[in-house]
Structures are given as structure tokens and as C-alpha cells.
């Protein structure tokens, strides 16, 4: 469990989420972003926790982990972890106060709310980046895959509750799932990272495993939601 203090928010990523593609924001939106960034940075309480397990078996249909009751199911997570000997289960959050800020902004000014929401999303990604670096340090010399989350491909989102149990995320960083497997606080992420002593084929984040790719407004505009 560790805290992450953010100094700034990645503006390019925020604009991408707001649908700007490569365009720049005008003066008025930039001013609003400056204001929102201050509020978001004050509200974010970035925390992450992770546990690293040895991979017991990767059958191509399911992955079992040593000493862990969670079984990762589906072809896509098997593909993601192919060649890996360990898996890091990670959970990161921007914290409950961030959720409240967004609720407050929604009640007072929707334009701020939309920007704050996008910024909070970027904040939790930055928290996960820090977690990933930490995992890299604790497994020095190993190669890592990108972050694969429940809900991607055919890895069921219904695993969230159990995922949080095995990472002790409730106690460690205050993240829970509701009955519909939605993470709370809202700006929270769970992900699996594969670790291997051998170099991993350069598998990157892509639209291939995304379940909304057919209907994605980003793709329709020829842009991507990730860098």
C-alpha cells in the first residue's frame, strides 16, 4: 500500500478524453481547466496496493495463481499472461474525496464537472503508473505486460469483488465493488500485470480487447482513448 502525490494532471490526456484529439483548448476552456486542476489535485488522495502471485497454471482458458482463491477466466487474460511466471494484481484509486468533488461540480457547473471528471480519470491512471513503477522495482530484471483490467476482452467484470478481496483493497486503500461490480470510489482501477523473466512480445494497449470498439465515439473520430 502506498500513497501517490500528484503535482499535475496530464493535460493532453484530459483533452483526449474530452474528445479533442490533437486540437488545443481555447482560452476559456484552458482557464477552466486551470481552475479544475487545482481543485482536483487538492481532492485526489492517490493510493494503490498490489500483490504479486506466482502463476500456477495458464490453460488458455483460465489462469490460476498460487495461494490465491481468485481464478482469472477467459481467453484474453490467458493471452495477456502468456509466457509470464508471475502476475501482479493491482488496484489504484483517486479516493472518495475526488468523487465528492465531481458530485459538487455537477451540482454547480457542468462544464467544470466534465473537465474535473476527465482529470480525475487521468489522475487514477497516474496513480496506476506509479504502482507499475513500484512493481517494476520490486521485481527487478523482469519484463512487464501492460495493465489488463476486468471487463477487458472476456475477463469478466464480475470478478471485481473477489479481485478486491485478494488484493485486500478494501482495508488497504478503501476500494470496494457494489453489487453490480462497479468500483467505488468511482475513480478506481483494478488491473493484472504479467511478469516474465524473458522478454515479452511488445504487447501494447490496443482497441483489440475493448468491448465497445464497434460503437466507440473516439474511434469514429479517428482517435484513441489511450496514448
Amino acid at each position: 500500500m502506498a500513497g501517490v502525490s500528484l503535482k499535475s494532471i496530464n493535460r493532453r490526456a484530459v483533452l483526449r478524453w474530452l474528445g479533442y484529439g490533437g486540437e488545443n483548448a481555447d482560452e476559456k476552456v484552458t482557464a477552466l481547466m486551470d481552475e479544475c486542476e487545482k481543485k482536483v489535485l487538492a481532492a485526489v488522495n492517490g493510493r494503490y496496493t498490489y500483490r504479486i502471485f506466482d502463476i500456477e497454471e495458464n490453460s488458455g482458458e483460465r489462469v490460476t495463481l498460487k495461494g490465491c482463491s481468485l481464478v482469472l477466466t477467459g481467453k484474453s487474460v490467458c493471452e495477456h499472461l502468456k509466457g509470464c511466471t508471475k502476475a501482479a494484481l493491482l488496484c489504484g484509486t483517486a479516493g472518495a474525496e475526488t468523487d465528492r468533488l465531481i458530485r459538487m461540480e455537477q451540482a454547480s457547473d457542468m462544464a467544470s464537472a466534465v473537465i474535473a471528471d476527465a482529470m480525475a480519470g487521468c489522475a487514477v491512471e497516474a496513480v496506476c503508473d506509479a504502482a507499475e513503477e513500484d512493481i517494476g522495482r520490486s521485481c527487478e530484471g523482469m519484463f512487464m505486460t501492460w495493465r489488463f483490467s476486468p471487463g477487458y476482452g472476456d475477463l469478466p467484470i464480475e470478478l471485481q469483488k473477489q479481485f478486491l478481496e485478494v488484493t485486500n483493497a478494501g482495508r488497504a486503500i478503501g476500494v470496494f465493488a457494489n453489487e453490480n461490480s462497479l468500483l467505488t470510489p468511482k475513480k478506481s482501477v483494478t488491473a493484472v500485470i504479467g511478469l516474465s523473466a524473458e522478454k515479452i512480445e511488445n504487447k501494447r494497449h490496443s482497441c483489440a480487447v475493448c468491448n465497445i470498439k464497434e460503437n466507440c465515439t473516439f474511434r469514429q473520430k479517428g482517435i484513441r482513448c489511450y496514448e
Partner: peptide, 10 residues
């Protein structure tokens, strides 16, 4: 094991 309103739905 679930967050209460307003952050959660319980």
C-alpha cells in the same frame, strides 16, 4: 464490504 451512499450504492 460495499461503500455506502453517496460514494457507493448501499
Amino acid at each position: 464490504g460495499q461503500l455506502l451512499e453517496p460514494t457507493g450504492t448501499l
